[in-house]
């Protein structure tokens, strides 16, 4: 086997520049997964994911997972690594409820998996995890969005994207990020879909089949059966359709009307 250089064969080797190549390659594994986008306002945190399908007869993958009533994740990268970590997260969340009667603070559960991931960057015989998460949740201190990455970092963002072609989504978010805090849920989802759409290849579009939307925070005008405190939920298929339709119709009429007005009209349908 030919290595790209002598300092990347395992994760116990620093390069002369003080870098860890194996860890950087694990970050590449995250970029192989399909994109996920997360955003946060003063009242809500949401995730939007792009699901892949292996063919016309195959179902679409699952990209968003519930961890606890107040907490959920979107993944990009190796799904089986995600299963190990999300199983761990569910245990941690459950133990917080059992021991303290408290929904686990979002930053803490993210740090806990980050600490696990860090160990795998420092010892021989284990590879770093090949998956990245966007984690949303609400706790004592409001709604939150965190990114977990295999290098053992867990950081809090107002908006973030991970996965394939996520740089395009990030560019959109960086442009719009200071508007997000005051957004309503529907506006936030709209920004999220715009951002996710930016990551698509030219020929592709967002459809109710390939898109899922996950939310924490009070129910929006299109939602029914959600409790007022707004626990974690995933909208797919028909439930996601109104939001995606709103996105498409707006595009066609963009030239004639203000986007915000148009969105309000279509949302009421």
């Amino acid at each position: 086997m030919v290595f790209r250089n002598s300092y990347d064969s395992d994760n116990t080797v620093f390069s002369p520049q003080g870098r860890l190549h194996q860890v950087e390659y694990a970050l590449e594994a995250v970029r192989q997964g399909s994109a996920a986008v997360g955003l946060r306002s003063n009242t809500h945190a949401i995730l939007l994911t792009l699901k892949r399908s292996t063919g016309e007869l195959a179902s679409y993958q699952q990209k968003a997972f519930k961890i606890d009533d107040h907490l959920g994740i979107a993944i990009a990268g190796l799904t089986s690594d995600a299963r190990v970590l999300s199983n761990y997260m569910r245990n941690q969340a459950m133990s917080s409820r059992l021991l303290y009667g408290r929904p686990i603070p979002v930053n803490r559960i993210v740090s806990q998996i980050a600490e696990k991931a860090q160990l795998a960057t420092q010892q021989y015989g284990r590879r770093p995890y090949g998956v990245g998460f966007l984690v949303i949740g609400q706790d004592q201190t409001g709604p939150h969005l965190h990114e977990f990455s295999p290098d053992g970092n867990a950081l809090e963002y107002v908006a973030m994207s991970i996965g394939a072609r996520s740089q395009m989504a990030k560019t959109y978010l960086e442009k719009e990020h200071d508007k997000l805090a005051e957004c309503s849920l529907d506006e936030l989802i709209h920004h999220g879909l715009q951002s996710l759409k930016a990551s698509l290849q030219q020929s592709k579009t967002l459809t109710p089949l390939n898109t899922s939307i996950a939310i924490v925070g009070p129910p929006g005008p299109n939602e029914s059966g959600v409790k007022s405190e707004g626990s974690f939920r995933i909208l797919e298929g028909d439930n996601a359709k109104p939001y995606i339709d709103a996105l498409g119709q707006e595009e066609q009429t963009q030239a004639q009307t203000q986007p915000t007005q148009q969105r309000d009209v279509t949302m009421q349908e």
Binding site: Y7, F14, P16, G18, R19
Partner: peptide, 24 residues
């Protein structure tokens, strides 16, 4: 290539490389 290897002049380069991460 390893923290457990000395160079012929008695240095442990992996520790020096770790210091590079600090300096950045």
């Amino acid at each position: 290539l390893s923290a457990s290897t000395y160079s012929p002049d008695g240095r442990i380069f992996q520790i020096e490389y770790a210091n590079k991460a600090v300096e950045n």
